[in-house]
Write a protein that binds this DNA or RNA. Structure first.
Lengths: 183, 183
DNA sequence: GCAAAGGTAGACTAGTTTGTCTACTCTCTC
DNA sequence: GAGAGAGTAGACAAACTAGTCTACCTTTGC
């Protein structure tokens, strides 16, 4: 069952855009790595931005899936599940491929907040926050401002882990989270 | 007292690199905005990276100065001064020119952690953390892990404010900080 | 068995971007 | 008043990058 050209392109784009960033990755590089003809590439994606958007959508879906699965797989009850977020993050930070949150990177790279990539980044964070809010609710936490606070903790931990290459920031944020949950 | 060509270049580079990012800003744009001859530019800065590094150094110095001054100007005692960090941040977030932390942006844009720009970004955060640690010490807080936690809060607030264009994240992080300081 | 859909190799175009170079001017200081 | 130091205008070279195009091949469903 061979992968279609489109799938191969998305796969390479997914990898390269995350690894190197949007601007630093050339269309030719994506074409080379996906082992596809230039013509074929442009048949599927009329412009670079098209492949960027598709790769980001893919990233969003896969990341949310991983995040949800990983946290729920810990099978921890109530507030412990919320703390489990940071155990999942730690695993991510330890991955040698880890290079921060693709969407925070996009936010830093694209300066115009109106661009569709930026819009997607906001939606990604919103979806993440909603998942957190759901877990909080399931844990019996009423205070709705907590999801927002935990959002700050998650992104703070991600950016610090990326900046310093220090996975322990997951633990740092976990301790903060435990404090506000009064666990 | 006219500004020297070098000063004009640094000033434009400082502004443009922060506003648009490193890769998105062309040397020609810096030259145009600084109203300097191309020849003059290359006499002072043999390559783009040279002007990038100098502009980032400038940014680091000015930001640290602003941060220190602003927090200390609040003239709040003890732990209140530490909380004042987030009041200062709020003012920054409200600035229409605000586009996140230049050094977190660099971290996202430059994927090779060995590059000198990335090294400078780490030093910037370290200097910031040291300042926070100093204020904590002056507030009589013994726990040394707190500076690290507050670092996460600061960067989490910055990145969220940037992503969503929502200055209220300063308040969100402030509340978290108050919780761990038990104020 | 054939038409349509999907894929291929890679030359080529047009525009951009970094950096070089020539030839010249202005303004101090000794 | 002459030479040094700093600056100017902008043409030019070289490399890179997004996207186009021609001509051809391979698989698959009917």
């Amino acid at each position: 069952m061979k992968a279609s050209a489109r799938e191969k392109i998305i796969e390479s784009a997914y990898r390269l855009f995350y690894k190197q960033g949007l601007r630093a990755t050339q269309v030719d590089q994506v074409i080379q790595e996906s082992e596809v003809a230039k013509r074929t590439f442009y048949k599927h994606f009329p412009s670079k931005q098209d492949v960027v958007m598709d790769a980001l959508q893919e990233r969003h879906q896969r990341w949310m899936q991983w995040f949800t699965d990983r946290v729920e797989a810990l099978n921890a009850p109530g507030k412990e599940r919320v703390l489990g977020i940071f155990d999942a993050l730690r695993e991510w930070f330890d991955d040698p491929e880890f290079r921060g949150c693709a969407f925070l990177n996009v936010t830093a790279e694209i300066y115009d907040a109106q661009e569709p990539e930026r819009e997607l980044a906001r939606r990604h964070k919103q979806d993440m926050d909603e998942k957190v809010a759901q877990w909080l609710k399931e844990a019996g936490v009423e205070d709705e401002s907590l999801a927002r606070q935990i959002g700050v903790l998650i992104d703070g931990a991600i950016i610090r882990a990326q900046c310093f290459g220090d996975a322990d920031y997951a633990q740092t944020a976990r301790a903060l989270c435990a404090a506000i949950l009064r666990v």
